[in-house]
Amino acid sequence: MDVFMKGLSKAKEGVVAAAEKTKQGVAEAAGKTKEGVLYVGSKTKEGVVHGVATVAEKTKEQVTNVGGAVVTGVTAVAQKTVEGAGSIAAATGFVKKDQLGKNEEGAPQEGILEDMPVDPDNEAYEMPSEEGYQDYEPEA
Score class of each variant (00 low, 15 high):
residue 3 V to N: 03
residue 93 G to I: 09
residue 79 Q to C: 11
residue 30 A to Y: 12
residue 23 K to Q: 14
residue 97 K to S: 08
residue 140 A to G: 07
residue 74 V to H: 02
residue 45 K to L: 13
residue 34 K to M: 02
residue 80 K to F: 14
residue 20 E to S: 03
residue 131 E to P: 14
residue 6 K to F: 04
residue 112 I to F: 05
residue 134 Q to K: 07
residue 130 E to Y: 04
residue 108 P to I: 08
residue 85 A to L: 15
residue 112 I to Y: 05
residue 66 V to D: 01
residue 99 Q to Y: 10
residue 97 K to F: 02
residue 60 K to F: 04
residue 89 A to F: 13
residue 73 G to S: 10
residue 68 G to A: 07
residue 121 D to I: 15
residue 71 V to D: 02
residue 73 G to A: 14
residue 93 G to F: 07
residue 109 Q to A: 03
residue 66 V to Y: 13
residue 66 V to I: 14
residue 30 A to F: 10
residue 65 N to C: 06
residue 1 M to S: 00
residue 87 S to T: 13
residue 126 E to N: 12
residue 94 F to Y: 11
residue 45 K to C: 13
residue 48 V to F: 13
residue 126 E to A: 15
residue 42 S to D: 04
residue 8 L to A: 01
residue 53 A to T: 04
residue 109 Q to S: 09
residue 129 S to I: 06
residue 71 V to R: 06
residue 72 T to L: 05
residue 116 M to K: 01
residue 66 V to E: 01
residue 32 K to W: 13
residue 65 N to W: 11
residue 110 E to R: 09
residue 70 V to L: 14
residue 89 A to G: 10
residue 125 Y to P: 10
residue 81 T to M: 07
residue 26 V to W: 14
residue 79 Q to T: 07
residue 38 L to V: 10
residue 32 K to I: 13
residue 80 K to S: 11
residue 21 K to T: 09
residue 137 E to I: 03
residue 70 V to S: 01
residue 19 A to F: 08
residue 118 V to W: 04
residue 115 D to G: 12
residue 16 V to E: 03
residue 112 I to D: 04
residue 69 A to N: 11
residue 19 A to K: 02
residue 124 A to T: 07
residue 49 V to D: 01
residue 23 K to R: 09
residue 135 D to G: 07
residue 73 G to H: 08
residue 5 M to Y: 04
residue 5 M to E: 00
residue 104 E to D: 08
residue 62 Q to T: 05
residue 107 A to Q: 03
residue 51 G to K: 15
residue 31 G to Y: 13
residue 1 M to D: 00
residue 90 A to Y: 10
residue 45 K to E: 00
residue 133 Y to W: 06
residue 72 T to K: 06
residue 122 N to R: 15
residue 32 K to S: 02
residue 48 V to W: 13
residue 116 M to R: 02
residue 37 V to L: 11
residue 4 F to N: 00
residue 54 T to V: 14
residue 63 V to A: 05
residue 45 K to T: 11
residue 29 A to G: 02
residue 71 V to Q: 09
residue 101 G to Y: 15
residue 57 E to K: 11
residue 75 T to S: 07
residue 59 T to G: 08
residue 58 K to Y: 15
residue 42 S to E: 12
residue 34 K to Y: 14
residue 22 T to M: 11
residue 48 V to P: 01
residue 16 V to R: 10
residue 108 P to L: 06
residue 77 V to G: 03
residue 82 V to Q: 05
residue 68 G to P: 06
residue 92 T to C: 12
residue 65 N to Q: 11
residue 9 S to H: 10
residue 1 M to G: 00
residue 40 V to N: 00
residue 57 E to C: 06
residue 18 A to W: 15
residue 99 Q to G: 13
residue 95 V to D: 08
residue 110 E to V: 05
residue 54 T to I: 10
residue 123 E to R: 08
residue 109 Q to K: 15
residue 51 G to Y: 13
residue 118 V to H: 11
residue 83 E to D: 03
residue 97 K to W: 15
residue 53 A to F: 15
residue 55 V to Q: 01
residue 67 G to I: 11
